[in-house]
Simulated scan of single mutants.
Amino acid sequence: MTALLFDLTFLVAAPFWALMVLAPKWSWTKRIAESYLIVLPPALIYVVLLVPELTTVLPLVTRPEIGPLADYLATPAGTALVWAHMLAWDLFVGRWMYLEGRRLDVHPLVMAPVLVITILLAPVGLPLFLIVRKVCDTTNRGAAVVTGQ
C-alpha cells in the first residue's frame, strides 16, 4: 500500500505541473490553478500515509534529532510520507508562482524553466522566482497584493 501511495502521489500532482509548464496561457490552466483544491490530492495522500504513522512521526517532529529522523526517513513509510509532503508543498508554491507569473505577465519561456526547477529543487526555484518577480514587478504591484493598497 505504501509503495502504491508513493507512486500515486506523483501521478496526482504531475498533471497540474504539466498544465502550468506546457500550457500556461490556456484559459483552463489558469482556472484550474486558481483553485487551492489542486493541492488536495497529494495532501490527502500525505494524511492517509501519516495516520498510521502518527505515533512514530510526532516525536520525530516535536523533538527532532538527526539520527532517529534519518532512520525513519530510510524506511518505506518515511520515504513515502516525506515524498507526499514535498509534492504537496511544492505544488502549492508552484501554483502561487504560476499565478504571480501570469499576473505580472512574465513570459512563459522565463516561467517554464523556473517552474521545472521548482518541481525538481523547490528551495532553489523559489528564490529564483522571487528574483524574476522583483525584476518583472516594475511598479511594485506585489506589495499591493500583500497590503491590499
Score class of each variant (00 low, 15 high):
V47Q: 03
L130S: 05
V145R: 15
I119C: 15
T118S: 15
G148R: 14
T75A: 03
A13T: 06
T2G: 10
L50F: 14
Y36N: 08
A88E: 00
G78I: 13
A23R: 10
L54T: 04
W83D: 00
L87R: 09
P127I: 04
P52S: 09
T9Q: 02
V135C: 07
T147R: 15
V132F: 05
E34M: 11
S27D: 09
I66P: 02
R141Y: 02
A14E: 10
T138P: 00
T56P: 11
Y36F: 07
V145H: 14
A77D: 04
M97C: 14
P41N: 06
V61S: 07
A74L: 13
T118Y: 15
A112Y: 04
S35R: 07
L91C: 01
P108A: 08
A84T: 00
P15G: 09
A3D: 03
F92E: 02
I45P: 00
A80C: 11
Y98M: 12
L128G: 12
L8T: 00
L49D: 08
D137Q: 11
T139E: 06
G125Y: 10
L19A: 05
R95H: 05
G148D: 07
K30Q: 08
A18S: 12
L19F: 02
L69H: 07
T56V: 13
T79Q: 01
L8R: 00
V51K: 15
L81P: 05
I117F: 11
V132C: 03
P41Q: 01
D137M: 09
D71K: 14
Q149W: 09
G142F: 05
L40D: 04
V39F: 05
G125M: 07
V116L: 14
F92P: 01
D90W: 10
V135P: 05
M1I: 13
V39A: 13
V146N: 06
R63T: 10
V93Q: 13
R31L: 12
M97F: 15
A144H: 05
F10N: 09
V106D: 08
L128A: 15
I32T: 09
Y98T: 11
P59S: 04
C136S: 14
F129K: 08
P24G: 02
D105Y: 09
T75C: 04
W26N: 03
E53C: 08
V110R: 12
A143M: 06
A18E: 03
I38A: 05
L60R: 12
L91V: 03
A88D: 00
E34R: 11
P76M: 08
I32G: 04
V82E: 10
L126I: 14
M111V: 09
L73Y: 02
P15C: 08
P42I: 05
E100I: 06
T2A: 08
V48T: 06
T139W: 02
M1S: 14
L22Q: 09
L121I: 12
V135F: 09
G142C: 07
V57E: 01
A74R: 14
T29I: 00
A144S: 06
I117G: 07
L54H: 00
L91G: 01
T118D: 13
L130C: 04
L130V: 03
K30Y: 02
V135W: 13
V12C: 07
F6K: 07
V124I: 15
F92Y: 10
L91H: 01
